[in-house]
Simulated scan of single mutants.
Amino acid sequence: MAPLPDGFSYAEWNATYNALSFGIAAMGSATIFFWLQLPNVSKSYRTALTITGIVTSIATYHYVRIFNSWSETFKVVSKDGGDYKVQLTGAPFNDGYRYVDWLLTVPLLLIELILVMKLPQQETVSLSWKLGLASALMVALGYPGEIQEDLAVRWFWWCLSMIPFCYVVFTLAVGLAESTSKQPSPAAASLVSAARYLTVLSWCTYPFVYMVKSVGLAGPAATMYEQVGYSIADVMAKAVFGLLIWSIASEKSAVEESGKLLPIAVV
């Protein structure tokens, strides 16, 4: 855990403070919504929706910890009604919570998408293992570079983490295209496509945010952009993605329920 740079402006501190607060609110409210919706989907999709809620509940916990750590790292004061001054307290800012969160939730995000697609069992198990392990490896390889100030070291670990990253993104964008076309209704297929491409889009923000400190930005501004960028990407990849998982489960439940209704015979 490298010490934070001194010299944060109130605007930079406040932007990060509000982004972390937004993360708590988005993840927490999404968790409540997903679990309340469990009785409204068919039994075969409840596992996927349960995992969706687990993902956002884990994220809520970690965002609370990151928020508290950020608040404890600074002292914000106003003297004689003047502008707010931001001072470091000397307490460490523990951003490692993010990587613990990703290590737990990123594989689950992919598994919930596979489950809600309701693929053949063998394909479901195979994809869950492959994508889950690849995504966990991606996070594990990214962390050593994240905590380094040496640009060459950061780029080295970035390149390594991009190998499993590209495999997962390719599988989502191309490998699941045929399975998507086999969904039970055009609406379900459209929602699955949206979930796949939202995952790809939101995930693509992480490598660029990771590179913030590798392209000339430094000091408080780099830290602020990094924290705000990661927070926005997390909300998109978990809370918004979870809403698409719920929409898919609801649509497919409705299709399956309507298929069970037999037409009344006319005598």
Score class of each variant (00 low, 15 high):
125 V>S: 07
140 A>I: 03
144 P>C: 09
131 L>C: 03
150 D>K: 11
55 V>Q: 01
5 P>K: 06
158 W>A: 14
181 S>R: 12
147 I>P: 00
113 L>T: 04
71 S>Y: 11
149 E>Y: 05
77 V>L: 07
214 S>W: 00
249 A>R: 03
221 A>G: 06
212 V>L: 11
20 L>V: 11
99 Y>F: 15
199 T>H: 10
162 M>K: 02
14 N>Q: 05
203 W>P: 06
122 Q>Y: 09
88 L>D: 08
12 E>K: 01
138 M>V: 01
109 L>D: 02
24 I>D: 09
225 Y>K: 04
200 V>K: 00
223 T>V: 15
162 M>H: 01
18 N>P: 00
58 I>Y: 00
50 T>Q: 09
65 R>C: 07
61 Y>E: 00
236 M>S: 03
231 S>D: 03
37 Q>I: 03
87 Q>T: 15
70 W>D: 02
15 A>L: 10
138 M>R: 04
42 S>K: 10
59 A>F: 00
250 S>W: 07
209 V>G: 11
233 A>C: 11
53 G>I: 07
176 L>I: 09
138 M>A: 01
153 V>A: 15
64 V>Q: 10
65 R>D: 04
160 L>W: 05
62 H>L: 02
53 G>Q: 04
44 S>W: 09
192 V>N: 01
198 L>A: 08
170 F>N: 12
81 G>I: 12
176 L>C: 10
158 W>V: 09
101 D>R: 01
193 S>D: 03
37 Q>H: 13
190 S>G: 05
6 D>E: 14
180 T>M: 13
88 L>V: 08
7 G>H: 12
121 Q>H: 13
264 I>G: 06
26 A>F: 06
243 L>A: 03
37 Q>G: 13
140 A>D: 01
142 G>Q: 04
220 P>M: 02
245 I>L: 14
167 Y>N: 05
196 R>T: 12
12 E>G: 07
10 Y>Q: 02
168 V>Y: 10
100 V>M: 10
109 L>C: 14
244 L>Y: 12
228 V>T: 13
40 N>C: 09
258 S>E: 06
43 K>L: 14
75 K>A: 04
225 Y>H: 08
36 L>C: 12
21 S>W: 08
41 V>E: 01
186 P>M: 05
238 K>S: 04
130 K>Y: 12
233 A>R: 09
13 W>L: 00
117 M>V: 00
251 E>H: 04
155 W>N: 03
47 T>C: 08
31 T>I: 07
